[in-house]
């Protein structure tokens, strides 16, 4: 009795799974905005704005722009994290409250200046989202320093505590 019921559930589960998977794949093939079955989720690909062009910047280049004062650094983390420590001179633009902080953080930054966003941890998507958002707002020279805060600390580069950038 139980075995019969178990078998019935099993067959129906297989049937539903088959239907769902088949529908998903067929519709995905047909529609124009379908996905590839295996996508590229590397940081470079996620920040690719067109084939071959990515918004990722390496630490060396970021460091050079820091010392030559060519770049504006934007900290995409929360104000609390920013206060606990940030890259010296970085402005705080918390991505989750971007609308609130945008005007203050972006004032007197020309559209073509080099902007480097960062947050904490390779998995942190705030700086990636912020970089893409700014890029689509017309800041053509925006870059993301992946895992920026960790890298910066690890290499003993200048940081600052508190609410003011410098």
């Amino acid at each position: 009795m139980l075995r019969q019921l178990g078998l019935q559930v099993l067959w129906q589960v297989i049937g539903i799974l088959f239907l769902g998977i088949a529908l998903g794949i067929v519709v995905n093939q047909v529609r124009s905005d379908g996905l590839s079955m295996v996508g590229d989720w590397s940081p470079e690909a996620q920040l690719a704005i067109e084939p071959g062009k990515t918004l990722v910047i390496g630490l060396d280049e970021a460091q050079q722009s820091f010392y030559s004062k060519r770049a504006v650094f934007l900290d995409a983390r929360s104000p609390e994290s920013y206060q606990e420590g940030h890259i010296l001179g970085a402005r705080n633009l918390p991505f989750e409250e971007a609308n609130k902080y945008l005007n203050a953080a972006m004032c007197n930054i020309p559209k073509d200046s080099l902007i480097i966003t960062y947050c904490d941890g390779e998995g942190c998507s705030l700086s990636k989202d912020l970089a893409l958002e700014l890029f689509y707002m017309g800041y053509d020279n925006v870059r993301e320093l992946i895992d920026g805060w960790n890298l910066w600390k690890e290499h003993g580069l200048p940081t600052k505590k508190g609410t003011s950038p410098e």
Binding site: L17, L19, G20, G24, V27
Partner: peptide, 17 residues
């Protein structure tokens, strides 16, 4: 990473069914 897109393709239809 290699399962993300296939999940996104199939899961909503499974929910619908």
């Amino acid at each position: 990473a290699y399962l993300i897109d296939s999940t996104a393709i199939v899961l909503p239809w499974l929910e619908l069914v």
